[in-house]
Design a protein around this nucleic acid. Structure first.
Lengths: 295, 295
DNA sequence: AACAATCAATTAATTTTATTCATACATAAA
DNA sequence: TTTATGTATGAATAAAATTAATTGATTGTT
């Protein structure tokens, strides 16, 4: 039978490079691991490593088991962690994933009243997922997803929690700053500064520039909002961000929001979770807190 | 440590209703299970069942562990099965999921040349998923999904494999049978027969009737294609199906296809898989076989 | 109310399994 | 060569899981 220890050994040998090193981190002897795996190999009737000299190279079966280990072991650790929290009377950890940069600013405002209302629930925020936010939900990496891009599929529950307007941000001294709105053409001589994501995922691109067939003069990417806004303020380029975010910073930094197009660009942020979980009280409460967030 | 046996016991007690019965199916004694779980409870410092008289009712922790068991145990069994197949020189089993009724007819035509080309790969077709096709892909229930409804998300790879036209099917003696196409209004006095799925997922509804604000006189659902066509032939109603499917049956059953609207309804079937898997040779080959299918 | 049947818990004995120790063997580097 | 470092193996040992036998509790039946 394939046991947890086998997966642990396989994962650790992959990480450490040798049985001996793996044995140390697992607090066992090299001999113990060798015996364990040998027995498993006999049961499965297939080798897990090719023994080349004194190094171990995983066979096809070994590679497959490594993938299984990397997938399954975290699920078991998570289960133990959850149970530990149950035992201590805590409610658990709400693991929130985020797929968009402005979501982070919004989330901060929601998390703080939530933590007050639910003192025995911890909140953990993750931003990188191997298989994207949806995959992270399905794979139990996270329990909740904040995204501009919902997915109405069986097994998942999404609801909009926050409407905002995406606007152009320019320096307060920029010639566009006084206009009530900009047309796509007016950006063809501007430098566009965005977060480092696929260009197709940027609203200003696929909802504004792309339909008009316009390209900005150049395109720079910057990780952090603060630096991005500093760049905009010093007239190195223009950016597209939520209006509320721009207004929040406008006191400190010399920037101004400008509506994108005659109608503006309306956006929504959605909160999603596994359908099976939406009745867990502390999760349900997060939806409520999110809906009644102060915006 | 939470071990496989613990999860197996918890799942089996849930299924069988008692420790004694679970012990039998697990080929152990009731005492063994009792000891195992008791030890686990001590380690986790939480009860798994409430002992009420002589019956066991899962606690919150128990319910949580049951969910973990139902999720994790199949992954381990699958891994063992895969390894067994590796060991025997077989390539494995390609587990294909399907989300649409006409896909099945199409799939049959693809599977047969594939099985010939890959004699050491088995194909298994599943049609019901707890969390939908996407969830089944992410949850390793299936390796490949046939769907009219692709999802371009990180972690998944989709490609179109088959274009077809969705047409109205009527009895050969029906007054619409001679028309070159039908307008939505002409269906307002017809009985519409469909597969038993959500009405919003039906193309004839959301792409044809809905936009025109038309409702059919009545709506019946039928599971099987053959019976559905028999019903249509005997003038009990009209249906919407792929043109190629209608033409295939038209020799045996007195039915006729009619184009939906002036432009017709164009449809595509997509094949999807986990990105991590698309380089597995026998999986890649299925994509190729599918693309070059005889349509 | 008494009785049999059913089920889980417990203790002690036993069996099985995992682990270590000591050592052999193989390889790469000095 | 020699040395250092790695894995494999057999026998001994420690640890663990499992069983057998029994108790106590509960449920259903007569």
């Amino acid at each position: 039978m394939l046991e947890r220890i086998h997966l642990a050994i396989i994962r650790e040998v992959d990480r450490q490079g040798s049985l001996t090193a793996a044995a140390n981190t697992l607090c066992l002897t090299q001999s113990a691991l060798s015996h364990s795996i040998k027995k498993l190999e006999q049961q499965l009737d297939t080798d897990i490593w090719l023994r080349e000299g004194r190094s171990l190279r995983p066979t096809q079966a070994g590679q497959y088991l490594l993938a299984v280990a990397n997938r399954v072991l975290p699920q078991l650790s998570l289960a133990e962690e959850q149970l530990r929290q149950f035992a201590q009377g805590e409610r658990g950890t709400l693991r929130i994933g985020m797929e968009c940069h402005p979501c982070y600013q919004w989330l901060l405002k929601v998390v703080s009243p939530y933590l007050e209302a639910w003192p025995d629930v911890d909140v953990d925020v993750k931003q990188k997922f191997q298989f994207g936010g949806i995959g992270a939900l399905f794979g139990y990496e996270i329990d909740m997803l904040v995204t501009p891009d919902p997915l109405y599929k069986p097994g998942l529950h999404f609801e909009p929690v926050f409407d905002y307007e995406q606007v152009l941000v320019v320096s307060r001294h920029h010639h566009l700053a006084k206009q009530s709105y900009v047309e796509p053409e007016q950006l063809s001589h501007e430098t566009l500064i965005t977060y480092p994501v696929e260009i197709n995922r940027l609203d200003i691109y696929n909802q504004f520039l792309q339909p008009a067939g316009i390209h900005p003069k150049s395109h720079k990417t910057i990780e952090t909002t603060d630096i991005m806004l500093q760049m905009v303020a010093s007239n190195r380029g223009v950016a597209a961000l939520p209006r509320w975010l721009v207004e929040k910073y406008a006191h400190e930094i010399a920037i101004a929001p400008v509506q994108l197009g005659q109608r503006g660009i309306a956006k929504q942020i959605f909160l999603g979770a596994r359908e099976a979980d939406v009745n867990i009280d502390y999760l349900k409460a997060f939806f409520q807190t999110a809906r009644s967030a102060p915006f």
